[in-house]
């Protein structure tokens, strides 16, 4: 693994704070993600994992601290020593370099799978239809759903929908992929197929930040695991180490509670 000094980090978060009204959700998060690294954010619900993830592509504006993605400050243009707030269209352009996958898939229900995939490349990058379709079909092939190109999202299972959503994000050829609890809305037997696609993606060298409750995935696929609680990063380190041998009491308690769940079910 490369160290912070070798290359510009893909994500560099400095003291990120975020409030929702009087409720402080993020209380100063520092986090670096190197290119090609897979980082899993774990922690109890309400710990701020999802909010932090959404700050990375500016779906949430930060109230304090600074976020860099791929060397650029999120939401601002740096000219000299002045930070100019970006226009909506500029924000959109930077967002198109970051793919995001949601818990609820959020596929466009009125479009076929193929139309879902070619929409952003056509609108944002002004790609020709033939090129966009060819690329979309390649990606559908990769997630094993080429034969579903003409189906509507509602006609697919949850697992298939999430694989389509991953392919849709990849269509924009992002340099960074964000996953917000991608398997939490799935039936247990469908989780595996989505995790497999994500694993393949990780092995292909994609930089990934994943908010997840799948500890086995975090242990086996992630390079690093970050445990968050109450808006702080409580513990982080190499995935296997943190998950099999946590040091912090809160991490231990959380992992124990997650582990016990399958036994109950």
């Amino acid at each position: 693994m490369t160290t912070a000094h070798d290359v510009e980090p893909m994500v560099k978060a400095n003291a990120i704070c975020k409030n929702f009204g009087s409720n402080q959700v993020l209380k100063g998060i520092d986090l670096h993600v190197q290119p090609g690294e897979v980082v899993c954010l774990i922690g109890p619900s309400g710990s701020g994992k999802s909010t932090f993830l959404r700050c990375i592509n500016h779906l949430e504006t930060v109230d304090g601290g600074r976020m860099w993605v791929n060397g650029k400050i999120v939401g601002y243009d740096l000219k000299g020593s002045k930070l100019y707030e970006q226009s909506h269209n500029d924000i959109c352009r930077s967002r198109s370099e970051v793919g995001m996958v949601f818990q609820q898939f959020n596929l466009f229900p009125h479009m076929t799978v193929l139309e879902n995939l070619i929409e952003a490349p056509r609108l944002v990058r002004r790609e020709k239809k033939t090129e966009a379709v060819a690329q979309a079909m390649t990606l559908l092939e990769k997630v094993g759903l080429a034969e579903k190109a003409r189906a509507y999202p509602r006609q697919l299972s949850g697992g298939q929908q999430q694989r389509v959503a991953i392919a849709r994000a990849l269509c924009m050829e992002p340099q960074l992929m964000l996953f917000d609890e991608p398997t939490s809305a799935l039936d247990p037997e469908l989780v595996g197929e989505v995790l497999k696609v994500m694993k393949d993606l990780a092995h292909s060298g994609m930089t990934m930040v994943v908010v997840t409750h799948e500890m086995n995935f975090a242990r086996d696929v992630a390079d690093r695991v970050v445990f968050m609680a109450d808006g702080y990063v409580v513990e982080q380190g190499p995935a296997r180490e943190v998950i099999t041998n946590p040091q912090n009491e809160r991490t231990k308690a959380f992992l124990a509670s997650v582990r016990s769940e399958p036994a109950v079910a």
Binding site: N57, L59, H88, N89, C92, R93, S94, R95, S96, E97, V98, G99, M100, F102, N106, L107, F108, E119, A120, L123, V124, A165, R168, A169, M172
Partner: peptide, 10 residues
């Protein structure tokens, strides 16, 4: 949100 995340304008 999904459209915004893909970089599609408002």
């Amino acid at each position: 949100e999904a459209a915004e995340a893909l970089g599609i304008t408002r």
